[in-house]
Structure formats: structure tokens, C-alpha cells
Simulated scan of single mutants.
Amino acid sequence: MTAWTPDELDRINAETYFTVGATLPDGTTPKTVDIWSVPVGDRIFIRSYNGTQGKWYGPALKTGRGRISAGGVDKPVR
């Protein structure tokens, strides 16, 4: 995982929603959801509406990995 570039942050933060999904141990990202984000400096924060029962959040907690897509940016995340 690499840090966000200023251009990536601008493009992601210009969107109302972005797509997030957990990356499973086999490397797949089978379930994704559209979600809001909150930018803080050079970081992006999100929260699961359904807590650990969310279709992306529980698996993301288990693997510590995910993928986001917004504004033409598609990137692995932790």
C-alpha cells in the first residue's frame, strides 16, 4: 500500500460516494458497497453503517485489507 497522492485525494474527495470492499485472503474483493468518506489531512476515514455485520467491514477486519474506487482512482487500502 502506498500513500495517497494529492491528486488522488482531490479526485476521491470530489466524489459524494466511493466504492469499498474487503480483500479476502485469496486476493479477491467479492462484495463492495458505496459509502461516504471523511477526508482528514492526507487520510480518508469511513465507517460501516451496519458495524461488524456490514458485508465489507467484517471481512475487512479479518484481513486488514481492502480496495477503494472513486474519481478514477482504484487502489488497495489497509
Rank of each mutant, 00 (worst) to 15 (best):
F18K: 08
T63F: 04
W36Y: 14
W36Q: 11
D10A: 14
G21R: 12
S37G: 15
T52K: 14
R78C: 04
T5H: 11
K62E: 15
N50G: 00
V20P: 02
D34S: 03
P39I: 05
R78P: 02
N13I: 01
W36L: 07
K62Q: 15
P59R: 07
A3Q: 15
P6A: 08
I46Y: 11
R67Q: 13
R43E: 10
V40R: 15
K75S: 02
D7A: 12
Q53H: 02
W4M: 06
G58L: 02
V77R: 12
T28M: 13
Q53L: 02
R47S: 08
L61C: 08
K62F: 06
E15M: 12
G27I: 03
G58D: 04
I68A: 07
G71A: 03
V73S: 00
P25C: 08
P59W: 08
I35C: 00
A14W: 06
F18G: 05
D7F: 01
P6M: 10
A22W: 07
T5I: 06
T32Q: 10
P59L: 12
E8M: 06
D74C: 12
P25K: 00
I12H: 13
R67K: 13
D34M: 07
R78A: 08
W56D: 03
A14P: 05
I46N: 04
K31E: 05
K75V: 11
K55C: 14
R67N: 11
I46Q: 11
W36T: 06
G54V: 14
P30W: 05
L9I: 07
R67C: 07
Y57K: 09
V33N: 04
G66R: 01
R47M: 12
R11D: 02
M1V: 07
G58Q: 07
A14R: 09
T2S: 12
D42P: 08
K62T: 14
T19A: 06
D7P: 00
K55D: 14
G58R: 07
